[in-house]
Write a protein that binds this DNA or RNA. Sequence first.
DNA 1: CAGATTAGCTGTCCTAGACAGGTAAATGGT
DNA 2: ACCATTTACCTGTCTAGGACAGCTAATCTG
Lengths: 164, 164
Amino acid sequence: MSAEDVPIERRPDAAAGGPISHAIFRLARTHRMLAGQLLRQVGLHPGQELLMMRLWESGPQRQTDLADEFDTDSASMTRTVQRLERAGYVRRVPDPDDRRATRVEPTPASLVLRKQVERIWKDLERRTVGEMTPDEQREALRVVHQLEDNLTAHEPDPERSVSR
Amino acid sequence: MSAEDVPIERRPDAAAGGPISHAIFRLARTHRMLAGQLLRQVGLHPGQELLMMRLWESGPQRQTDLADEFDTDSASMTRTVQRLERAGYVRRVPDPDDRRATRVEPTPASLVLRKQVERIWKDLERRTVGEMTPDEQREALRVVHQLEDNLTAHEPDPERSVSR
DNA sequence: CAGATTAGCTGTCCTAGACAGGTAAATGGT
DNA sequence: ACCATTTACCTGTCTAGGACAGCTAATCTG
């Protein structure tokens, strides 16, 4: 096996400055587009299904915790939840312990969606792993996790730190 | 080394349906957000710098080719180019060979930006690879490329295939 | 030449992130 | 108990972007 066997850079120059970042960008793009295509079948946009999955799996959540979880701000979360509420997939119930807060929970109607989303994700995962062996899949998972860890690691920026 | 050493799923249940897809989603999110943060320093949005890099590296391009390259449609590309044009980073020149087409080229002024973008990408890449050894980096690149290949492989959908 | 295709632009509708305010509820110090 | 601060959530605005439809002008093909 000579080094020529595996083209290190598929896009010879475009990735020069940061090959891995570039590859992540492209992978993310492709993956997101495919997810978007599949999800449009059930009227969801990419990202919304993650929120729903979180609710299905962990039950009612406060918006703040959701915003935290998804690294977004409360404003974006408000609107995302509103859209899902309009679609009939989530419901807000006042938090009994904190009258400022509302808890977001999946509606019974969303359980139909859940089946579809699970099918879509299975399909997405199938296409993502392709012909990879289970070992290769574990390795891929490890690598992707490590990359994420790298990014979150030395970014200890809990306060967005503004002058005020 | 027992199996417990490496948590296969950091988010025990949330990734159940498609661990790798889920990991890609999270990685992409984090990566994009970091890129966005860094790029905001120079007034670019994530994605725009890829377009600029393409222009810097490969010279003037027709919009259609750019839209193709970035898997978007001509409408989105039109607006993206317009924004970059307003910002003074690109210029349109009529294609001498095809009077329907315009060629997009980087402006001399954009060369300042280029230095900054290259610095940012270097920084981004540095944070992405973290403490990985060169071997690990090559492996990561291989994995990410393979995942992308998997997704593009058996998606032979050149025509978006509508009933019309 | 006529019809089809291609390149590009515009407009509309939607999602989304960032940011700047606002209200109501909860909390903590005195 | 009172008041200042913080927290949870909402709203509006700006910008970027994807999808889709419709349009003009130029090019290609039979």
